[in-house]
C-alpha cells in the first residue's frame, strides 16, 4: 500500500464525514422551516418557542449554527437532550458500545455460517446443496428485520419459552443472563447478513475455481483439499472483506429495528426514542454516530484490502 493511496483514502474519508455532517444537520435543523415549532408542536406558547430557539441557537444564521454544532461535535459535545437534560454524547457513546457488541457478535456468527455455506455451494455447484444455499439466501434477504425478529420472538420466546423476548442485562453484571438476552437479537441480525455473504462467497469462489492457476494446481497433482484451502479460498475470501464492510450499512439499518423490537438500549433504539420525542440534539448525535461508524469501517476495510492484496497497486 502506497503512501499516496493512504493519503487519498484518508482525504476521501474526511470529505465523507463532512458531507455526512452536512446531511444530518441539514435534514434535522437547517431545512425545517422552524425547528422549534417542529419540536414543540403547533400549540406551543411563544415564550417556550423563544426559549428553545435561543437554546439551540436557531436565531443565528444557518452557517453559524452549523459551525457551532460541528465545533461542539469535534470536542465530543453533542449538546443536551431536550428530553432528559443530560449530555447526549455520553448517552450515545454508551449506547454505541452495546450496539457494537450486537454488531460484532452478529458478524462473527455470520462468518461462521456464511463462509462454509458459500464454500459448499461453490464446490457442489448446480447440485442439491447449491440449490439449498441459494433458496436460503433468497429467503434470508427477503424477510425484513422486523419480520424476522417478530417470527423469532414468536417461536423462541412465546411458543418454546426458551429465551427472553426483550430486555438487556450487561454482561459485566450477569454474564449468563446477558448472553441469554443477546441470542435472539444476534440471530435476527445475522440472518440477512448470512444470506448476502454466502451468495458472495459462492460466486467469488466459483470464479476463482475457474482460473488458470487453480487448473495448474490440479494438474500438478495436488489433492482437492490443498487446492481449495491453500490456493482458491485465500483469493476468494479477499473480496469478502469489502462486502462485509459494505454490509455494515444493512447491519446498522437492521440494528435500529432489532434494538427497538428487543428493547436493547443501543444507538438504534436511542435514535427511535429521540425521533418519537423530537429530541433534536439526540437525533443529530445518533444519526451522525451511525453514519460515521459506517464510513470509518469502510475506510479500514479498504486499507486492509489494499494491505492484503499485493497485486493491487493504488496510485
Amino acid at each position: 500500500m502506497s503512501l499516496t493511496y493512504l493519503l487519498r483514502r484518508s482525504g476521501l474519508m474526511i470529505y465523507t464525514l463532512v458531507v455526512v455532517s452536512l446531511i444530518v444537520f441539514g435534514i434535522t435543523q437547517a431545512l425545517p422551516a422552524d425547528a422549534a415549532v417542529m419540536m414543540l408542536g403547533e400549540n406551543a406558547t411563544p415564550d417556550a418557542l423563544a426559549a428553545i430557539r435561543q437554546r439551540l441557537g436557531l436565531d443565528q444564521p444557518v452557517w453559524m449554527q452549523y459551525g457551532r454544532w460541528l465545533a461542539g461535535v469535534l470536542h465530543g459535545d453533542f449538546g443536551l437532550s431536550l428530553r432528559t437534560g443530560q449530555p447526549v454524547g455520553a448517552v450515545m457513546i454508551e449506547a454505541l458500545s452495546r450496539s457494537l457488541l450486537l454488531a460484532v457478535l452478529s458478524i462473527g456468527l455470520m462468518l461462521l455460517v456464511a463462509v462454509p455455506l458459500g464454500i459448499v455451494a461453490a464446490i457442489r455447484r448446480g447440485r442439491i446443496a447449491d440449490l439449498f444455499v441459494s433458496v436460503v439466501s433468497y429467503v434470508g434477504v427477503s424477510f425484513p428485520e422486523f419480520v424476522t425478529a417478530t417470527l423469532v420472538v414468536l417461536v423462541m420466546a412465546d411458543w418454546l419459552q426458551l429465551l427472553p423476548a426483550t430486555g438487556y442485562v450487561p454482561l459485566t453484571e450477569d454474564p449468563l443472563r446477558g448472553i441469554r438476552h443477546l441470542v435472539l437479537p444476534v440471530l435476527t441480525v445475522s440472518v440477512i447478513l448470512v444470506a448476502h455473504v454466502s451468495r458472495m462467497v459462492r460466486s467469488e469462489l466459483v470464479d476463482v475455481l475457474h482460473t488458470d492457476y487453480i487448473r495448474a494446481a490440479r494438474l500438478k497433482g495436488l489433492d482437492e483439499r490443498t487446492v481449495l484451502f491453500r490456493h482458491a479460498l485465500r483469493n476468494a475470501l479477499l473480496p469478502t472483506i469489502t462486502i462485509v464492510a459494505l454490509d455494515v450499512g444493512y447491519l446498522l439499518g437492521g440494528i435500529i429495528v432489532v434494538e427497538e423490537i428487543f428493547a436493547l438500549p443501543g444507538v438504534g433504539r436511542q435514535l427511535i426514542v429521540a425521533i418519537q420525542a423530537r429530541d433534536l440534539p439526540a437525533i443529530q448525535a445518533g444519526a451522525l454516530i451511525m453514519a460515521a461508524t459506517y464510513s470509518v469501517v469502510n475506510f479500514l476495510a479498504d486499507l486492509a484490502y489494499a494491505a492484503l492484496d499485493k497485486r493491487i497497486q493504488y496510485a
Partner: peptide
C-alpha cells in the same frame, strides 16, 4: 461521484427515518 459515495454512507433506513422525521 465522490459526494454520492459520501451520501451513501448514511444507511437507507436511517436516511428515510431522518426525512420522515422532517
Amino acid at each position: 461521484m465522490r459526494t454520492i459515495d459520501a451520501i451513501m454512507s448514511v444507511p437507507s433506513l436511517l436516511f428515510a427515518l431522518l426525512i420522515v422525521n422532517l
